[in-house]
Nucleic acid binder design. Structure first.
Lengths: 340, 340
DNA sequence: TTGTAGGCGTTATCAA
DNA sequence: TTGATAACGCCTACAA
């Protein structure tokens, strides 16, 4: 039989109400009683029953993150670092972290959000990989459920978020490639309704203009943020009549696939083919050759988002509702240069 | 106002009891009524309130996994793949997956398990990185809480588990290294009370005997399963008078650190220094050079464990309570050979 | 400062 | 086959 406030009350000859308030730190209880209650609770190993508390308070004390990914594809270091950040920061509050996976935009994803919201399993959400028009944002707003996001949508809603100035990052990256002598730069991206893809392309185009390279639609490929996707896209890119001499990718995971394909073709990455990623995940340090990438502090962003969400949920004023970060160019051997 | 069985009942002119049973598939309800209820529930977007259900049923319909890791920044792909497996398999059942992190063996870890058990937040657990004598196993058994584990303890308890024949794996690995001409093989491991460390050392010693290499205690280093740990251990190993020409590691993450340190010293990994890991995480493919490792199906193991736990929790008979897997040697360039 | 009691949404045990 | 009704453990007006 588990120990409840009732059993503590009985042992102490108090009412359960008194025990409850003593434990919850209400002011209307004598210090002495409170001490007795607290001591006894510890002694008996009391742990509040989560379900009862949730039912009564009508909240779950949990925040949810639903990975927008195909179920089988989950080995993306980005998610690990991100989830690690969520977990570490959540641990600082009396919250749980609920995690699940669902293919973005599909019916199961909607069902899952609905079930977590309606079933009160989570009372706040973290969102990543936002779409230009994201139904999740609209849904959560319509339900009055707080959330915090990485990236933004085009719909002009106001919510706490962290943004990465991806466009500038890509421009800088293009500049770097051009400096190193790469002339024909391809871009492997993601689904066109992703905000990061739209930013990526903007940066790409501006980067081309800045370096006076002509835009060639054959060099822009839509992929799916996975290394397999990067691999396949690269196969395609390398088989066209006038193949690129450099490839920038929407994320590191895609770039890993590019490296794989390039090796298979016997190309010397960094010289024959420049390759760059985006995210700066740990694994990018250890590739062959190490990957040039735009580093963003994924782990810290996740922590920051939880912090923001927490403030939002407890109604604290947020000093910065919108944080914009500049990515940081990490130059490594994968773009050492045609001239090198 | 959220839709509850009560609101469905009112709309249908039924009692809440009838609605509840209709939804839960009890046999004592007319087919017609059941259909009406189900249709109405869908129409109104009914989602059962988790907390109420849990409170009443006295279970959480959730399984827990507490990562045995230091909270600050861990980016170990092993956990990602493992958690991915847990998540994917859990999604096949009406369960939640609760994940948290706590330093193994420390007080917070105990508090966390206690809180999840007593507070009925999880009614089953997955355990990894078992110690030779593991308090978690004893605690959960004493509380009658079901669990399934990767690895075993020495205490002879009976519980569903997956074991990896690490010892044979290490012996095979040593054989491979010896074949490739490596003579002075070091071993970077983990805490001595870890079961995997004990297996690792057994394999190491047997491997030495089999290849007629003398045991040298200077070549056996305790580390902490992180790449930082592997890096530091390697610095130490390479600074002794008679440094090793090969290093085997307790996991891939450690090996990543070894690669880093070796590069820093200007060594050609694979030739000057053979390096091997254990786990076969995805990232090991992309290192410089690609890492020789003993591959174990981390993702599938996780799924299998959830399957076992699920059977245990629902009282289904388990055909195999104990599964033993053979790891699979993946030979890559990090052990290409002194002679190569 | 403390006790009492109603109710959160479900499930389960009775009768009807 | 269905309808009342009592829990489950906790919180919180309100009364004492």
């Amino acid at each position: 039989m588990a120990v409840t406030i009732r059993s503590i009350a009985k042992k102490l000859g108090l009412s359960i109400g008194a025990v409850s308030r003593a434990l919850d730190g209400y002011p209307d209880i004598s210090d002495e009683t409170r001490q007795r209650v607290i001591r006894m609770a510890q002694e008996m190993g009391y742990v509040p029953n989560r379900a009862a508390r949730q039912l009564r308070r009508k909240k779950a004390d949990a925040i949810g993150y639903i990975l927008p990914a195909e179920t089988p594809r989950f080995a993306d270091p980005f998610f690990l670092e991100f989830v690690a950040g969520l977990g570490d920061e959540t641990a600082c509050y009396p919250f749980d972290l609920l995690i699940s996976i669902a293919s973005p935009g599909e019916d199961p994803e909607q069902k899952l959000y609905q079930s977590w919201v309606q079933g009160r399993k989570a009372d706040g959400f973290i969102l990543t990989h936002l779409h230009l028009h994201d139904w999740r944002v609209q849904y959560l707003i319509s339900q009055g459920v707080p959330f915090a996001t990485l990236e933004d949508t085009l719909d002009g809603f106001d919510f706490p978020r962290v943004e990465v100035d991806r466009k500038s990052g890509v421009v800088a990256l293009m500049g770097h490639l051009s400096e190193r002598g790469f002339q024909r730069i391809a871009c492997i991206g993601g689904s066109p309704d992703l905000k990061i893809q739209s930013d990526q392309l903007e940066g790409y185009r501006e980067g081309l203009r800045a370096t006076d390279i002509r835009y060639d639609p054959d060099l822009v490929i839509e992929s799916n943020l996975t290394s397999t996707g990067g691999y396949q896209a690269t196969k395609r890119l390398l088989s066209i009549p006038d193949p690129p001499d450099a490839i920038i990718c929407i994320n590191d995971e895609t770039a890993f696939g590019v490296l794989h394909a390039a090796h298979e073709q016997g190309l010397t990455v960094g010289h024959d083919l420049g390759v760059a990623g985006f995210d700066g995940v740990q694994a990018s340090k250890h590739t062959e050759p190490p990957l040039t990438t735009m580093d963003i502090p994924v782990y810290d962003i996740a922590r920051q988002l939880v912090k923001m969400l927490q403030a939002e949920m407890t109604g604290q004023p947020l000093s910065e509702r919108r944080v914009v970060l500049q990515p940081n160019l990490l130059i490594r051997a994968s773009t050492s240069g045609k001239l090198a």
